[in-house]
């Protein structure tokens, strides 16, 4: 393809505009978090902190229960990831390899569940959790998050298990190994990349969930990060600096994760879409 110099320049300008639009809100958040209190209310707003002020970061962690939110989110998201991936690697293997009736029905059921709007199940789930004494607990959220991430996780892993060549299993079978043994010793290690990809996706979904976290865990001590951020504004003050600082802290690990595992995430996300 021939390209004139002009069109190359135009192309790079387009790329730059896209990048600026994507990055700008983050830039704004970061400088807001570093602005000293007296600069926060300037009109027009300043585009650079008049002096670097770390008070907002300190306040987010000391005067507000932000550390608690982080801890809660970590517990819930990590447990959900572990539980969902554990449960669905069995299911995914069975669906990919073993022969039994109703496999397609199960996959179809999972797919339709993935389309459920959360609001359609939140009221009875709230009542069930209340009955089981699981409101304001980690278990209630973990259970719910595991369930809502199972469909995605199950599809991903099933697809992934199918891509693993059958020869190795066949060889193991010839040696007389049971399907279960084959699964643990041969398939799982081969599937590790797929499991890892799935785990990242489940983790992000659980880390970001809002509706159930908002309705189930109403005590401050059990709030997760997304709810904590949404509820940050107090009764009488608007702590823009503090919220910005808190958001920067929340976003950083996600950015690092995305940059590190970018390829995996994209392949996990697109696996379903591209193959139909």
């Amino acid at each position: 393809m021939r390209k004139s110099k002009l069109s190359t320049i135009v192309f790079y300008i387009c790329v730059a505009i896209f990048m600026i639009i994507i990055v700008f809100p983050f830039y704004w958040q970061i400088i807001t978090s570093l602005k000293p209190p007296e600069q926060l209310w300037d009109i027009p707003p300043g585009w650079w902190p008049s002096r670097f002020y770390l008070g907002s970061y300190i306040a987010a962690f000391t005067q507000r229960p932000f550390l608690t939110y982080l801890k809660n989110s970590a517990i819930v998201a990590i447990s959900t990831t572990a539980f969902a991936v554990f449960v669905t690697s069995f299911a995914g293997y069975a669906l990919a390899r073993l022969h039994f009736k109703g496999k397609n029905a199960i996959l179809a059921l999972a797919l339709s569940v993935s389309m459920f709007p959360g609001i359609a199940i939140v009221s009875p789930l709230f009542l069930m959790m209340k009955q089981w004494n699981l409101l304001n607990s980690y278990v209630g959220l973990i259970l719910t998050y595991t369930t809502i991430t199972i469909p995605l996780s199950m599809w991903n892993l099933t697809t992934f298990f199918r891509t693993i060549p059958a020869d190795m299993e066949e060889a193991a079978k010839v040696d007389g190994a049971s399907p279960f043994y084959t699964f643990i010793r041969i398939i799982l290690p081969l599937a590790a990349p797929g499991i890892f990809t799935t785990a990242i996706l489940v983790f992000i979904a659980a880390w970001n969930e809002f509706l159930f976290a908002l309705t189930f865990n109403t005590k401050d001590a059990l709030r997760t990060v997304p709810v904590g951020i949404a509820m940050f504004p107090g009764e009488y003050t608007l702590p823009w600096g503090d919220i910005s600082a808190a958001s920067v802290v929340v976003v950083l690990p996600l950015i690092i994760m995305v940059l590190l595992f970018q390829q995996r995430i994209v392949s996990g996300l697109t696996a379903g879409a591209v193959k139909g």
Binding site: I204, V227, L254, I255, I265
Partner: peptide
Amino acid sequence: VLVPWAIPTTVSATM
């Protein structure tokens, strides 16, 4: 381009 997708919606909405 993945970053906006990965952050919690409440955070991006606040921004």
